[in-house]
Write a protein that binds this DNA or RNA. Sequence first.
DNA 1: AAGACGAAAGTGGTTGA
DNA 2: TCAACAACTTTCGTCTT
Length: 307
Amino acid sequence: MRRTTISECPDCGSKDLRKDREKGEVICKECGLVVEEKMVDFSQEWRDFSDDGGESKRRTGAPSTYTQFDQGLGTEVGTTSDFYKLGSEGAKDKFFRLRKWQYRISTAIERNLKVALAELKRVSSFLKLPKSVEEESARIYTMAVQKGLVRGRSMESVVAGALYAACRRHEVPRTLDEMGEASGIEKKEIGRTYRFVTRELGINILPSNPADYIPRFASALNLSAETQSRSVEILEQARDIELTSGRGPTGIAAAALYVSSLIHGEKRTQREVADVAGVTEVTIRNRYKELIKKLKLTKEVEKNKKK
DNA sequence: AAGACGAAAGTGGTTGA
DNA sequence: TCAACAACTTTCGTCTT
């Protein structure tokens, strides 16, 4: 895969950049700007779900692209020019039957996919998601359609659910709020379809890591790179003493960022942090209290308060 | 006046009988 | 299927800067 390399930050010109290979992000250490969000595609095809309904969707060969409505493969059984190559009458009958049958089952799905993938691309570009996530979500959506999971649900909500799932798998999580804003679907609904689709398709998603949210939140708050990396340290320590399990990852990320901003004398209000993280001040306060207590950070915060 | 703090009641999802 | 439960939110009053 070809990757372009950027050697200096377009915002402040600093050459001190930090690369996060896993997330395909490049972050400027000076200003914390997320310079590049290019995803390395390490996705695999996990399409051999166990037998269901008898029809096998397996195939071999080069991977096709899923962001084209027909997956980049022609779906015509044959063209009329092929017709004249056929010999017997039986073969000709079969030719027509096959083509008619093929046409019927494919048009419904194709029509759906065509519209859905356009919507998917729209939302994806709105959220500035990497290409590989877009591909993955298209793949998820395609499978959902083939299994008839869209029935009884709005197409848009399934699209949003597929995108959300793909983001999680690629460790570039967006919050349900952001997804809701981009797609115009209520976040409750997205969460519901997301859970439904992933369960039905047997996709397992690891619980998202709070640290994955840090670069974006910090960038939105104009926090320095030191503050940012400090908050990641805090998160690691918090995880080691089981402060993170069971809690909402965004809340923890937000609290770590808040503490870190206090320590580095770039104070942000709880309100500001809460807004970009999509949680309430109360949640930040609760996490914040736990953090400074369990990690004996009180002294550090006090020390920098006077500045 | 704005921000931080905390109590109390409500919401939606998970879990276990 | 239902009730208990944990996490989070909303709302509101009080304290601090």
